[in-house]
Design a protein around this nucleic acid. Structure first.
Lengths: 174, 174
DNA sequence: ACGGTCATGTAACTCGTTACATGATTTC
DNA sequence: GAAATCATGTAACGAGTTACATGACCGT
């Protein structure tokens, strides 16, 4: 099962939603970490419904062009739990794009490298602020592992920032 | 330009290689962080050659089924540098699969969660050992940013391990 | 009456993975 | 001479992104 399918089922485990709402949900709940496009949402919902994992109903009923709210079915719940466990158990190889870029960075000139690093640092500091706010706001209200996800994200961001700073402090001697 | 294309060009910036050798190169140089499949290598090499970014020659010449060694061209070098810079400059959104899983972890039972976390911890500790060895072996011999890539990988691994440990120490009270 | 945002959808495309097929060369 | 590894390739598939198209509803 694809990540998008799992993500949608997972969101619907919480409450029924329509397509547009799913997008909002991911933007608000974890937009910093993970996102899904409309181009994935609607086809995936259709397919999930055909397989009986979710059930859609027009709401308000009969309105043309109105929204379709999808709820997860019993079968969908079982499938979600099974898949989540399965995915967690098989070690996923993480292809880190930035690490690959880093391996080739020596080919670029010092000025470009510095510029890129500074921009990354800036971006990461902004995201960190965002996560800290999330953390403050949501502390205590979140389920255990949802909070752990935020904490983990924050820790990795802080590590990245610390690495960027130490790298910037020791510029490449030419 | 796709990641695979960039990766292949980047490897060929170092020295000419044939397909099989490229795979070995990534396994040895950065297998912990990044990998490429044969299913990507050969078609990509062909396409790169058609575009004049690399040049292949049979070696030893004329042998049937023998290897084809590819070297990067001037055009390829220019394209590689341009693309690397371009990619670095546009902020890439990182879709972290494990974070998504984490957001849904509360749906699983405590035993399964513990099992998964322990396995992750074990796996990460093994990879850390591997990176530490790399670090020791290669310290001083690596170009600046290639070494930074290793150091960064190590730092993030240590962060992940520390997060896993602290999470395991505070089991979910049921 | 206009702009914004709510809301659904499709088509074309790129990318990458997996599995398979083939055969040469080396090593024991 | 058998097994391992070197070496190249293809076909089918699955997943995700981007861009586009359409139209309703709401506030000012």
């Amino acid at each position: 099962m694809s990540l998008s399918r799992l993500a949608i089922l997972g969101a619907l485990m919480e409450r029924p939603m329509h397509g547009y709402e799913l997008r909002k949900y991911f933007e608000e709940a974890q937009g910093v970490f993970w996102m899904i496009n409309y181009g994935s949402i609607y086809p995936t919902l259709k397919r999930l419904e055909k397989e009986g994992l979710v059930k859609g109903r027009a709401e308000p009923a009969g309105r043309v062009g109105g929204r379709i709210t999808y709820a997860i079915t019993k079968k969908g719940e079982a499938e979600f739990l099974r898949t989540l466990e399965e995915r967690l158990k098989k070690e996923a190889f993480v292809r880190d794009e930035f690490t690959l870029h880093l391996f080739f960075l020596d080919h670029l000139d010092g000025g470009t490298i510095r510029e890129v690093m500074e921009k990354k640092l800036e971006g990461n500091l902004a995201v960190l602020e965002c996560i800290k706010r999330l953390d403050e706001e949501l502390k205590g209200t979140l389920p255990r592992y949802r909070y752990e996800a935020v904490r983990r994200g924050r820790m990795h961001l802080e590590t990245e920032i610390s690495w960027l700073k130490s790298t910037l402090e020791n510029p490449l001697e030419v």
